[in-house]
Design a protein around this nucleic acid. Structure first.
Lengths: 181, 181
DNA sequence: TTAAAGTTTCAATAATTACTGAAAGTTTAA
DNA sequence: TTAAACTTTCAGTAATTATTGAAACTTTAA
């Protein structure tokens, strides 16, 4: 497996970004490689292209499956497993986004809900409760909004952007409309 | 500095979430501690409350300043520096969001713009270019949308949510309105 | 000036996280 | 069954990241 410089460049970049996107370097590279290749790849091809051990590929694939980012294919008469991205770029991004919400926001929302139910026993705790309530409200709003946006298709979002509409303009329009009716 | 169990619990949680939010455990705890305390704290108080070294606090504060999350106060006749969160919860979240966009999306957008300008030299590269174009378009859309949403005040967002309006409903309203006029 | 009160830096080390490769496990065809 | 072809696991090790604490630096009051 010999990557062209352009493709290798992209794959290496995905590796560097990997940890920022929620996985590690190797897994970032794997995503890049799978996305940039039209044909599904075997674990050995991945190990070879990225110059990593076979065992590491196996662990990476497992992780990517837990994020629902890869799909397995079988070719009749061939025992190897072939891997490819599970869906369009948009689908992949949505899953990463969703998974990160689960990891980065949900646990805190759970904690805050519990803490807020509990009553404060001192002036410091009264202030602490207020702050926790603010964080809770913020996170709930963000969660709801991200769910709304995820529901839209890329076409809906992009056509909206291309119309030159900002969200605030849309909200203004909505306000006007509601006032009239 | 003795934290009540409830407050300690919150601070420790912030520590555990720290790395998921883009910093490390200690810095997560520092944010939690500063946010939950009404009064600004000195570096020594932070070190004491979190049981970490003074040097570590210094480095953490530096990092938090680079994210623009803390503010320094001085009390007349007192040489110590007092730290507090730089703005409301909403302000802090906005800055984290913005900073993460810079780290997680912008570098990739830059790379993809360059790659897309370059012409493909093989069928594999043609496919690769197409995929890179899709990722580019997706990231641009996400970037523009997040900028739009950040522009709204928490009140605007929340009132909108409370009206029970989903974004798609708002978009539908907008379409109807545009069709009429 | 000086020294006290504070802050920052950074080399050494600790803690965490990722990776390898050999062994164990699984599946399939004969 | 057996063995070939493949995948997974995981103990040991490598690489990376975070933390300490002592020394260097800075600021201010006398």
């Amino acid at each position: 497996m010999n990557l062209s410089p352009k493709i290798e460049n992209f794959v290496l970049h995905c590796g560097e970004m990997g940890s920022r996107w929620g996985f590690n370097r190797t897994i970032g590279q794997m995503v890049g490689l799978l996305v940039i290749n039209e044909k599904p790849l075997t674990a050995n091809e991945i190990a070879d292209a990225l110059k990593i051990s076979r065992g590491n590929v196996s662990m990476g694939i497992k992780e990517l499956q837990s994020w629902q980012l890869v799909k397995v294919h079988h070719i009749p008469g061939d025992r190897k497993e072939y891997y490819s991205p599970n869906g369009s770029i948009w689908d992949l991004a949505n899953r990463v986004f969703e998974e990160r919400r689960k990891r980065e926001i949900d646990p805190t929302l759970t904690l805050l809900r519990d803490q807020i139910l509990d009553s404060a026993n001192s002036p410091e705790e009264v202030y602490a409760q207020q702050q926790m309530q603010s964080i809770h409200d913020l996170l709930e709003t963000v969660t709801k909004w991200s769910a709304e946006l995820q529901r839209l298709s890329p076409e809906q979002l992009q056509s909206l952007m291309k119309l030159g509409s900002s969200v605030s303009k849309v909200i203004d329009l909505k306000d006007k409309l509601l006032r009239k009716s």
